[in-house]
């Protein structure tokens, strides 16, 4: 892959990023760069700050220190209008999907389209059906989120995050709680999107199957720092005891 081609070719660039809650230091001076078209997976134990990292990148939380550049703009220094323009180019999947309870599946996926595009109703409906078909949810368009299982919510959330054809996708555990077949389908969808659209991905996951299927690069968060940064295959050669232990336990489970 020629992703090394241009020096300023980064979709996301974090420098010296720190975030604490009260006295708890969740992220401690993180430096990280995601190139355009690259898929980065983020590993780490529960509570290590993976979700916080994603929320910082889309500006839902404010960092205590450091800069967050998305598409060359430091989102900590721009106005809300400018931030919203950047947010339109980012697809975000929440860990709990965060579907709007008062809207049907179809309306959930249509929400970003309704807000930010001038599509006519028929075109919008087609687009929504197409997105839902990609995640295998085309049969449940009329259901309310409360009538869906956790995995189904995840898939609808994924369809919603794809609605505006984003350049960057931030996915918080897209395959957690899914059966192996659906997991494989979601992984294929991510691979297709990488190839068709050259999207950049940051994927938080616990699932080594997903890591092996989609990742170009893996980072591991441990105690607020990145203790590993490299290709998935290089993980077993990392000298760090936490990385080895994580890998050993993960392989033991598979």
């Amino acid at each position: 892959m020629n992703i090394e081609a241009k020096a300023d070719d980064s979709a996301i660039r974090l420098q010296g990023l720190s975030k604490s809650f009260a006295s708890q230091h969740v992220l401690d001076s993180i430096d990280l760069r995601v190139r355009r078209g690259e898929t980065l997976t983020v590993l780490g134990r529960s509570g290590s700050g993976k979700s916080v990292l994603l929320k910082l990148i889309i500006g839902l939380q404010k960092p205590d220190a450091g800069s967050i550049e998305v598409d060359g703009q430091d989102i900590t220094r721009i106005s809300l209008t400018e931030l919203n323009n950047i947010r339109k180019t980012i697809g975000f999947l929440f860990q709990q999907a965060a579907l709007y309870d008062s809207l049907t599946v179809e309306e959930n996926v249509a929400f970003p389209l309704r807000r930010h595009t001038t599509l006519r109703t028929a075109e919008r409906t087609d687009r929504v059906r197409e997105l839902l078909a990609r995640v295998g949810m085309e049969a449940e368009v009329r259901k309310m989120p409360a009538q869906l299982s956790g995995g189904m919510k995840k898939r609808v959330g994924l369809a919603r995050s794809l609605a505006l054809d984003p350049k960057i996708m931030l996915l918080d555990e897209p395959t957690a709680g899914l059966d192996p077949i659906t997991t494989a389908e979601i992984n294929e969808l991510i691979q297709d999107l990488q190839q068709e659209r050259q999207m950049s991905f940051v994927v938080v996951t616990h699932d080594m199957l997903t890591v092996n299927a989609v990742a170009n690069r893996v980072v591991m968060l441990y105690k607020g720092r990145l203790v590993f940064d490299g290709a998935p295959g290089e993980m077993k050669d990392s000298g760090h005891p936490f990385v080895s232990k994580f890998l050993r336990e993960a392989e033991g489970r598979d």
Binding site: L60, L80, F94, L99, Y100, P112, R115
Partner: peptide, 18 residues
């Protein structure tokens, strides 16, 4: 309140809606 605690308000913000 329930939209807030289930991150639906965050989701609205993330889709660039105020």
């Amino acid at each position: 309140g329930s939209m807030k605690v289930t991150e639906q308000i965050d989701a609205i913000e993330a889709s660039a809606v105020n």
